[in-house]
Design a protein around this nucleic acid. Structure first.
Length: 485
DNA sequence: ATATAATTGGT
DNA sequence: CCAATTATA
């Protein structure tokens, strides 16, 4: 019987896995995961991602009847070596779109071809292939709305999820003389310091866990998604991002679960929620699209005018960065967000924009500092979404928020966390402060602070930035690069 | 060519 | 009102 190697990467699922489905049709499947220790620094997984990956692999291995083969090293060597040892004539994988992954995979494809082995890659993680969405003049879109509405929605609908039952596994007696077969624990993905306790409450890292999140979202949140998704104290978003990143669920499963559930529903309200959610999946597509067509956006400004932007990098701003990272800026909504991130490996989307704007605009710290911190702390850390998101906030990106649009964290807090519930969850020392001051404790009269049991500078920090002064400073910095070529 | 819509905002 | 850029009519 023919042996087919399935190389799992960011598609850690059984259902709707095109590579696995293809392999099933060919013969016996040899499922493989390789922890690639040759990825460049910018793609090397951060702590939270590694935590998620550990559990995702455990779940996948279980679903594969404990047949998953684990290795660590250079896939460019391991994949061909595996094919030799196991006499595989076919290799299947689902495509990744990180630039380093694209070049790695094309090298592997060439090697395999030279060995007379069939290598087949499929699209398992995007609704529309980036190369097939272009403007009429043949160049890529740089603005989201026309990209999504004209580029994506007007072409063929996304692939419908495929069935992948009946996997037959290759002989387990195959030996790999040249390779060390590892266990998942051998990869040492779990943190040495116990900062991940809260992660377990929040994330059921399994394919079923992803399906549960999706089902729960469809029954309880999507009809009010339009408004509720902006309220961080409410579970109004899908919470699917880490599952989508590691491929425990595909965007196709998500897209059609949502579309099918609301087929025939007339309620304009619910239909709106669905439309807005689908367009958020569109934003994910747009991020991958930009990374695919403009590889440099991961490390460099999409808009090169920002290359001379006067980011601050002095002693003060190093302290500011630490205060931001640890949630001690003295701006409640910012601190709540940063503490949520560190505790749970996640941060609400609305709050990501607020903390991002504060770092980049009020503190004038290079967006890449924020990008790196998010990369290390987020369980859903994703090269495309992270880079596109930060550049959007910084104003340096495609279809970015213009730099002069500077979020005011007090107003954002008062608008989206009216009762201060979110702030109080992550900054409990502010729990007894009246709503009126919950987003600006420094404005509270001394008596109110005393009654709330807060001494600023002791129980909770003084704000590290004057919002209106730093706003002006940001506008000046921006106009300094505006004139530049 | 030139106008207009669109882009998770603040004063 | 402020203001930058892109896509398309």
């Amino acid at each position: 019987m023919t042996q087919a190697l399935v190389w799992f990467r960011q598609d850690l699922r059984i259902k709707d896995n095109p590579a696995l489905a293809n392999a099933n049709q060919i013969g016996n499947v040899l499922p493989v995961y390789i922890f690639d220790d040759t990825v460049p620094e910018e793609g090397s997984m951060g702590g939270a991602s590694r935590w998620f990956l550990h559990h995702a692999l455990e779940s996948l291995n279980k679903a594969l009847d404990n047949k998953l083969l684990i290795f660590k090293g250079d896939p460019k060597e391991i994949i061909p070596s595996l094919c030799k040892s196991a006499q595989c004539q076919h290799v299947f994988w689902n495509r990744m779109y990180e630039p380093w992954a694209i070049s790695r995979d094309s090298i592997i494809k060439t090697t395999l071809k030279s060995m007379d082995i069939n290598a087949t890659s499929s699209n398992g993680s995007l609704l529309w292939e980036p190369m097939s969405v272009l403007k009429k003049d043949g160049t890529p879109y740089k603005v989201y709305t026309p990209f999504y509405k004209n580029g994506c929605l007007k072409q063929a609908p996304p692939r419908y999820p495929v069935n992948t039952h009946h996997t037959k596994f290759a002989e387990s007696s195959v030996e790999f003389p040249d390779l060390a077969r590892l266990t998942i624990s051998d990869l040492q993905l779990l943190p040495k310091i116990k900062w991940d306790e809260k992660f377990y409450e929040m994330w059921d890292v399994s394919e079923n866990g992803a399906q549960d999140k999706l089902a729960h979202f469809i029954t309880s949140s999507i009809d009010n998604y339009d408004e509720q998704r902006n309220i961080p104290s409410v579970e109004g978003t899908s919470l699917l991002s880490p599952y989508l990143h590691f491929g425990l669920i595909s965007p196709n499963q998500t897209w059609y679960a949502v579309v099918d559930a609301f087929e025939g529903i007339d309620s304009a309200k619910e239909r709106k929620g669905v439309g807005v959610y689908l367009s958020e999946l569109g934003w994910r597509e747009f991020s991958y699209y930009l990374l695919f067509h403009f590889n440099h956006i991961q490390r460099e400004n999409f808009n090169s005018k920002f290359n001379i932007f006067p980011w601050k990098n002095d002693t003060q701003s190093k302290q500011d960065l630490t205060a931001w990272q640890t949630g001690n800026t003295g701006i409640p909504i910012v601190d709540a967000g940063m503490r949520e991130l560190y505790k749970t490996g996640y941060m609400h989307n609305r709050v990501r924009m607020i903390v991002g704007s504060f770092l980049v605009k009020n503190l004038l710290i290079d967006w890449r500092r924020g990008e790196r911190w998010f990369w290390d702390c987020l369980v859903d850390a994703d090269t495309a979404s992270n880079a596109a998101g930060w550049q959007w906030v910084a104003g340096s990106g495609a279809d970015a928020a213009p730099f002069f649009r500077i979020f005011n964290p007090i107003l954002q807090g008062e608008k989206f966390d009216k009762q201060g519930e979110y702030v109080k969850t992550y900054c409990p020392e502010l729990s007894n402060l009246p709503n009126k001051y919950i987003h600006k404790p420094w404005d509270a009269p001394p008596i109110i602070l005393a009654e709330a049991g807060i001494t600023l500078g002791e129980d909770y920090p003084h704000p590290i930035a004057d919002l209106s002064a730093t706003r002006k400073r940001a506008l000046d910095a921006y106009s300094s690069i505006k004139k530049a070529v």
